[in-house]
Amino acid sequence: MQIFVKTATGKTITLEVEPSDTIENVKAKIQDKEGIPPDQQRLAFAGKQLEDGRTLSDYNIQKESTLHLALR
């Protein structure tokens, strides 16, 4: 499925993911596309910060959802 990640600079990244993917996997995909190390990424959805060990389906993130990326 496709999801979107909006960066602090307003850029939107499109990612191909599975509901079973962990947040860690998603951060690795962002690193592949943007070169941002996962340990510098903070992802949020619906106002909640997402934890590495959880999956997209844990957070009820569905196709075409938009996550927000902040850098630490």
Rank of each mutant, 00 (worst) to 15 (best):
G10D: 07
E16K: 08
D39C: 06
R42K: 12
I30G: 00
P37E: 12
F4N: 05
F45W: 07
R42F: 14
K48L: 14
G35V: 03
P37V: 07
S57D: 08
Q62S: 09
R72S: 11
Q2C: 05
P38Q: 14
G47C: 04
E18H: 10
A8Q: 09
E18P: 04
I3A: 01
V26R: 00
A70G: 10
D39N: 08
F4L: 07
T55D: 03
L71V: 14
T22V: 13
L56G: 00
E16G: 10
D58K: 03
F45T: 03
I13V: 08
D39Y: 08
D32F: 15
L56K: 00
Q41S: 03
K48M: 10
L69V: 06
D21S: 14
R72M: 11
D58G: 04
P37L: 11
Y59K: 01
S65F: 07
I36M: 06
K6Y: 11
Q2S: 08
L15T: 01
D39Q: 08
T12S: 09
L43R: 00
L43V: 03
P37S: 12
Q31N: 15
A28V: 09
D58M: 06
I3T: 01
G35A: 06
D52W: 04
I23W: 02
A46M: 12
S20L: 10
V5T: 02
E34W: 12
T55V: 09
M1E: 02
T7P: 06
T9S: 10
I23E: 01
I30Y: 03
A46E: 15
T14E: 11
E24Q: 07
P38K: 08
H68G: 05
G10R: 05
Q40V: 14
G47V: 02
K6L: 15
I61P: 01
E64K: 07
L67S: 01
A46R: 15
Q2G: 06
Q31A: 14
V26A: 02
K33N: 06
D52R: 04
I13L: 14
V17C: 04
S20R: 12
K33P: 02
S65L: 03
Q62V: 07
I61S: 01
H68R: 06
A44W: 13
A8N: 10
I30S: 01
L67W: 02
K11S: 15
Q62E: 12
A8K: 12
V17Q: 02
L56F: 03
R72K: 12
V17G: 02
S20K: 06
Q31M: 10
S20M: 12
K29S: 06
E64S: 11
T12P: 05
G53A: 10
L56V: 06
E64T: 11
Q62Y: 13
D58A: 08
I36R: 03
Q40K: 09
G35R: 10
L43Q: 00
Q2E: 12
D39L: 13
I36S: 04
E51H: 14
K48D: 08
E51P: 03
S65Y: 14
N25L: 09
A28Y: 13
T55H: 07
I36G: 02
Q40E: 14
N60Q: 13
G10S: 07
E16M: 13
Q41T: 04
K27Q: 02
E64V: 03
D21M: 12
T66C: 04
T7I: 11
Q40C: 05
Y59S: 03
N25S: 15
D21N: 07
S57Q: 14
S65G: 06
L67Y: 01
V17T: 06
Q41R: 02
Q31K: 06
T66N: 05
T9W: 12
G47I: 02
I3L: 15
Y59W: 03
M1F: 14
T66R: 04
K11C: 05
T22S: 08
P19D: 13
I30V: 06
G53T: 08
K27V: 02
N60R: 10
E18F: 11
T9N: 08
R72E: 14
T66Y: 08
I30P: 00
Q40A: 12
E51R: 06
P38G: 10
K29T: 04
M1T: 03
I3V: 09
T22Q: 06
Q49W: 09
S20D: 14
E16A: 08
K6S: 07
K6A: 07
T14F: 07
Q49R: 10
Q62K: 15
A44D: 13
P19L: 10
P38S: 12
I13R: 02
V26N: 00
T12H: 07
